[in-house]
Design a protein around this nucleic acid. Structure first.
Length: 659
RNA sequence: GCUGCUGUAGCUCAGAGGUAGAGCACUCCCUUGGUAAGGGAGAGGUCGAGAGUUCGAUUCUCUCCAGCAGCACCA
C-alpha cells in the first residue's frame, strides 16, 4: 500500500496509507477528537470525515469550534433531516434540492397539498426526533445507471433530472441519514446527533420554480434557519424583529409620510411630512451636484416610440414600459372614442430611464471637445411597469425619480470622471450617515459589443480610478453591461444590511445608436463616451433606506417635524407662539402644541411621531424666558434660555453641506 | 408574472349564512395637569370589486383588483 504524508496545522506531518479517512486520522490522534470532529479541511477543501485521502496533503480536523465549517454542516444536515422528516410524514412528497443559504437552508418539495404553518410545527417535531436518534451518516459513491435506476424505481423524477445535469466525469455521491437516502455532494456531519436540536427553526413556506425557471414547475420551498446553539438562534430572531420594527411601510404610516392605494399600485402619494424629507434630500443633492460641476436639465416624460426604437429599449423592454396610445385627431370638442380616427394614432411610452433624452439634449447644436466633459444631471421621473410581485413599499415602485446624470466625455477623460464620482459619492454617503460602503467592479460579460482593446482600456481606466482614490473593491468578473464595465456601490445600514444604491457605467453604445458626436481638436467628428451614474439611485428607495436605517429617527436636518413646542398650562400659549415664530425665522420646522392635554400625553404622542426635540413650556419657562428641552430617546431634560435654544436648533437644522 | 396567504371603522384586530364589534385615533364637554396614555359623552363601516348559489351573502363558490412572503424580474 502506498503511503501518504498528512501535514497538520501545527506543521507536524504523519504518514498514513493512501485511502485513509479523516475519521481514521482523528481516531489516531485521540478518542475525544474522533468524537468531536465534524469534518476536515484538506488542502483548503471542505472534506467529509468518511472520504478517503489519496495524496499528500495539508489536513485540519474541524470541530464545532470552527464556526464556518460547523455552520455549513449544521445547515446542510438540517436540510437533509428536514427532507427526511417531510417524507416520513408524507411519503408521497417528491424531493428536489436543499442548499445552504445565509443563516440557514431551504429545501424544495413537490407536493400536491400546500404546506401549512401547522405542518411546519409537525416537521420541526419530527426533525428533533431524528436528531435525537443520533443516526449515523453514511456515504457511498454510485455509478450513474444505478443512481438513475434507484430514483426511477422510487418515483423521484427530479433527482433523475439532477443526475442528468451533473457532468459525466463527476462521481455521484449518495448519503444516508439513518435509513433515509439522498443524492448529495457532501460533506456532512458524522451523525444526526451533532446537529444542535435547539438551534434551528422553520420559518416559512413559499413557491419557487424548479431550477429557478419561471416556465417550469412551481415547487414548495420550506425555509429554515440554523445555528450552533439556542443563543445564536435567538440573536438572529431578534435581528428579524429589529428589521420589522424598522419597516418603512409601517413607519411611513405612523409618521404620516406617505401612502399608496390600489388605484395607483407602485406609486407613492407623498404626505406633507414625507415630502419634506424628499425635498430636503433633493435640495441637498441639487446643491451637491451644482458644486460638483453638473448642469441640471429636465426632459419629457411621454416620448414617441421612435426614440425608444432608436435607443433599443423598445425591442428589449417594451413589456416593462407604460405605453400610451393617443389619437391625434381629437380636439377639445370631440374627444370621445367614437370620433377616433385610427390613422392618426400615435404610440408613446412613459420614459423608463433618462439616458435617451439626455443624448437628445447633447445632440442639440454642435459640441466641441472644449465642451467635454459635459455633465448633465436630471431628477428624472421615470415609470416602469414592474411585475406586480416585485413591488415593495416605496423601495420597489413603478413611478420614481432618479438622481440621474450622464457625463459625455472622451475616452481619456473616463478615468478622471470616475475618480471624481467616487469622491463625490463617498462625500454624499458620509454626510447622509453612511460611513461605510463597498465598491463592486463588474467587468466584460460573455455577450458584449465593442473591441477587446476598447474593453481593456476602459476596464483599466475604472480600476485605476478606484486605486487613485484609495478605495478597496471586489471584482465581479463577467457582470458588466453588454456595452461596458460598471461600478456598483453598496452601503451598509445600521443593522448590517447591504443596499445597492450608486452606480457608474461606461457606455460607448448609446451615443453610437443615437448619433451623438463632437468636434475634436483635429477638426473631425468623434463619438463621445457616455457615463451613466446615480448616487442615491431613486429618491423613493433611498428615503425608504433612510427611514429603515434611522428607524424613523432621521437626523435633525432631514426630520420632517423638527420641534414641537408644547404648553403645560394654557397661560403659556402666547410664549409658545413666540418661540415657534423665533424658531421658524431661523428655518427650523417648529410647530405649537397648545392642546388641552397633559404634558405626558403630548410627550408620548410626539415621541411616537419621532419628533427629535420637544420644548415644554410652563409657568417657570414663561417667567424666566427659558425652555425645557427633551430630546427624542432621552429621558432627562435640560433647561436652556430661549436665545440659546434658537441658535442651537437653527444650527442643527442646517444641512451638512451648508455648515 | 408564478405559488401560498390576506383584504371588516383612520390604525391594530375580533366576528358569524339572518344586513356588524373592541382598543387606540377623531369630535364635544369636564379637567390647567411638569415629561411616554386624566375622566365622560358622541360620531364613524356598500365588511376590496363584480358575478353565482340561497328566501336571504360581509360570511359559501368563481372571476377580478390590491396587499404580504418567497420565486422569477430589476435597462
Amino acid at each position: 500500500m502506498a503511503q501518504i504524508s498528512l501535514t497538520f496545522p501545527d506543521g507536524n506531518a504523519r504518514s498514513y496509507e493512501a485511502g485513509v479517512t479523516p475519521a481514521d486520522v482523528a481516531a489516531d490522534i485521540s478518542k475525544s477528537l474522533a468524537k468531536k470532529a465534524i469534518s476536515a479541511t484538506i488542502d483548503g477543501q471542505h472534506w467529509d470525515m468518511q472520504w478517503p485521502i489519496q495524496n499528500d496533503a495539508q489536513i485540519a480536523i474541524n470541530t464545532m469550534k470552527d464556526d464556518a465549517p460547523a455552520l455549513e454542516l449544521i445547515r446542510h444536515d438540517l436540510a437533509h433531516i428536514m427532507a427526511r422528516a417531510v417524507q416520513a410524514l408524507w411519503p408521497d412528497v417528491k424531493v428536489t434540492i436543499g442548499p445552504v443559504i445565509d443563516n440557514g437552508w431551504y429545501y424544495d418539495f413537490d407536493r400536491a397539498e400546500p404546506f401549512t404553518p401547522e405542518d411546519l410545527g409537525e416537521i420541526e417535531k419530527k426533525m428533533r426526533e431524528i436528531i435525537n436518534k443520533r443516526d449515523p451518516v453514511r456515504t457511498e459513491v454510485w455509478d450513474r445507471p444505478r443512481a438513475i435506476k434507484h430514483y426511477e424505481d422510487n418515483g423521484e423524477p427530479y433527482k433523475v433530472e439532477l443526475i442528468d445535469a451533473i457532468p459525466g466525469d463527476q462521481p455521484l455521491r449518495m448519503y444516508w441519514h439513518g435509513e433515509w437516502q439522498d443524492l448529495c455532494r457532501g460533506p456532512h456531519l458524522q451523525h444526526t446527533g451533532q446537529v444542535p436540536a435547539d438551534g434551528f427553526k422553520l420559518m416559512s413556506v413559499a413557491g419557487a420554480y424548479w431550477r429557478g425557471d419561471s416556465k417550469r414547475q412551481m415547487l414548495q420551498r420550506i425555509y429554515g434557519v440554523g445555528f450552533q446553539n439556542k443563543e445564536d438562534l435567538r440573536k438572529y430572531l431578534n435581528f428579524l424583529e429589529e428589521a420589522e420594527k424598522r419597516d418603512h411601510r409601517k413607519l411611513g404610516r405612523e409618521m404620516d409620510l406617505f401612502h399608496m392605494q390600489e388605484e395607483a399600485p407602485g406609486q407613492v402619494f407623498w404626505h406633507p411630512n414625507g415630502w419634506t424629507i424628499y425635498t430636503q434630500l433633493q435640495d441637498y443633492m441639487r446643491r451637491k451636484q451644482r458644486a460638483g460641476g453638473y448642469k441640471e436639465i429636465n426632459t419629457p416624460q411621454v416620448v414617441d416610440r421612435k426614440l425608444w426604437e432608436a435607443s433599443g429599449h423598445w425591442d428589449k423592454y417594451q413589456h416593462h414600459m407604460f405605453v400610451v396610445e393617443v389619437d391625434e385627431s381629437r380636439d377639445g370638442e370631440n374627444d370621445d372614442a367614437a370620433v377616433k380616427d385610427k390613422g392618426q394614432t400615435r404610440i408613446n411610452a412613459l420614459k423608463p430611464m433618462n439616458c435617451p433624452c439626455h443624448v437628445q439634449v447633447f445632440n442639440q447644436g454642435l459640441k466641441s471637445y472644449r465642451d467635454l466633459p459635459l455633465r448633465l444631471a436630471e431628477f428624472g421621473s421615470c415609470a416602469r411597469f414592474e411585475p406586480s410581485g416585485a413591488l415593495h413599499g416605496i423601495m420597489r415602485v413603478r413611478g420614481f425619480t432618479q438622481d440621474d446624470a450622464h457625463i459625455f466625455c472622451t475616452e481619456e477623460q473616463i478615468q478622471e470622471e470616475c475618480a471624481r464620482f467616487i469622491d463625490f459619492l463617498a462625500n454624499v454617503y458620509e454626510e447622509l450617515g453612511f460611513a461605510e460602503f463597498e465598491i463592486k467592479f463588474a467587468t466584460r460579460p460573455e455577450k458584449r459589443v465593442g473591441t477587446e482593446e476598447s474593453w481593456d482600456y476602459v476596464e483599466n481606466a475604472l480600476e485605476n480610478a478606484i486605486k487613485a482614490v484609495g478605495r478597496d473593491y471586489t471584482l465581479e468578473p463577467g457582470d458588466g453591461a453588454f456595452y461596458g464595465p460598471k461600478l456598483d456601490f453598496y452601503l451598509t445600514d445600521a443593522i448590517g444590511r447591504v443596499w445597492q444604491c450608486g452606480t457608474f457605467q461606461v457606455d460607448p453604445n448609446l451615443p453610437e445608436r443615437l448619433g451623438a458626436s463632437y468636434i475634436a481638436a483635429d477638426g473631425d467628428k468623434h463619438r463621445p463616451y457616455m457615463l451613466h451614474r446615480a448616487t442615491l439611485g431613486s429618491f423613493e428607495r433611498f428615503i425608504g433606506i433612510l427611514i429603515e436605517n434611522w428607524e424613523g429617527k432621521l437626523p435633525f436636518w432631514l426630520a420632517p417635524r423638527q420641534v414641537v413646542v408644547a404648553s403645560i398650562i394654557s397661560d403659556a400659549d402666547d410664549y409658545v407662539h413666540e418661540v415657534v415664530a423665533a424658531l421658524q425665522a431661523k428655518g427650523v420646522r417648529a410647530e405649537a402644541d397648545i392642546r388641552n392635554e397633559k404634558i405626558n400625553y403630548k410627550v408620548r404622542e410626539h415621541s411616537l411621531g419621532k419628533v427629535p426635540v420637544i420644548l415644554a413650556v410652563g409657568a417657570r419657562e414663561v417667567e424666566e424666558r427659558t425652555l425645557t428641552v427633551r430630546r427624542l430617546g432621552q429621558k432627562q431634560t435640560t433647561v436652556t434660555s430661549l436665545a440659546d435654544v434658537v441658535n442651537e436648533l437653527g444650527l442643527a437644522a442646517t444641512p451638512p453641506d451648508q455648515l
